[in-house]
Design a protein around this nucleic acid. Structure first.
Lengths: 154, 154
DNA sequence: CTATATGCAAATCGTTTGCACCTTA
DNA sequence: TAAGGTGCAAACGATTTGCATATAG
């Protein structure tokens, strides 16, 4: 189910060149991090991870690359959590998330048929739908355990 | 279906006082604007509308009041569009939106049973779900008409 | 060689905060 | 008159941008 990393990097390289773009070590390193990170990292987290092996990279490049990858459909930008965007480079197709309002963690949910939503929504004819965002906000299991008792979260 | 304005303002006043808060002309004016605006306005738009009748109000007060109203469940904060938050003061219960990626407009959708989603999602037991966010991103009817042709939106 | 990317630093911009003053209850 | 709210201006923090330099093809 998971696409091999090398295959994905190759595909990115091909698509970049086909569009008149360049294949740079920065771009490859960023996708490598994204393709291996299940935690839906922020731009800054991606930056720090990439910097570990490519110390000269800048945060600006990370942002620019994320924009490029999003346009190409290789990465999904998620709903902002507390002011910052999070990215999903493992499952570029829209899928639901559970966002913890206490610790900020984001988990994928197992709702496979998001398409049902599209049908239920009955979008006006002739209208394009680019992305679906289905997010549930609540407490993650760990935060639930930590607060215990019956105090409702704020 | 729509609650009369005066009734809503009264309820807000009662709830504010019950919680040890004060009923101020600023708060009433802000809710008045929110309860009448179907366009999912931004904080700045709300500020400018309220300022028309209460010139001395500040943007900071609008932000502080929006936070208060959100906590009380009188207003819903929507997914950020191009960096800014949008608010829905007419239908505080979660409901799906169609967000236009071209002009930034936000329309309500007619999917009544968001609860179905919660059941489909099969959230882990013992987990609180505070809010559901179901958004569809695409072109609104007007933007569709303006671009015409079969060029896919970016 | 030339179009494209990168890195740096400065600029943006929505939102938050500290604090003195004003208002509600 | 005391707790709570407002207004102002400064602070914040994520993201964007301009531009000189570096690099892929």
């Amino acid at each position: 189910m998971t696409e091999p990393l090398e295959e994905r990097l190759d595909r990115l390289s091909r698509r970049l060149r086909a569009a008149g773009g360049r294949v740079t070590s920065e771009r490859l390193a960023i996708l490598r991090v994204l393709a291996a990170d299940e935690s839906h990292p922020s731009a800054d987290t991606i930056y720090r991870r990439v910097a570990a092996e490519l110390p000269s990279i800048s945060l600006a490049t990370v942002y620019k690359t994320l924009t490029t990858l999003q346009r190409m459909g290789e990465v999904l930008e998620l709903t902002a959590v507390q002011g910052e965007c999070r990215y999903d480079g493992m499952r570029p197709e829209p899928h639901p998330h559970l966002i913890c309002t206490r610790c900020g963690s984001i988990a994928n949910l197992a709702l496979e048929d998001v398409e049902v939503l599209l049908r239920l929504a009955a979008l006006p004819a002739g209208q394009w739908t680019l992305t679906t965002r289905v997010d549930f906000w609540g407490y993650c299991p760990q935060c639930c355990a930590e607060v215990s008792g019956d105090t409702r979260p704020e």
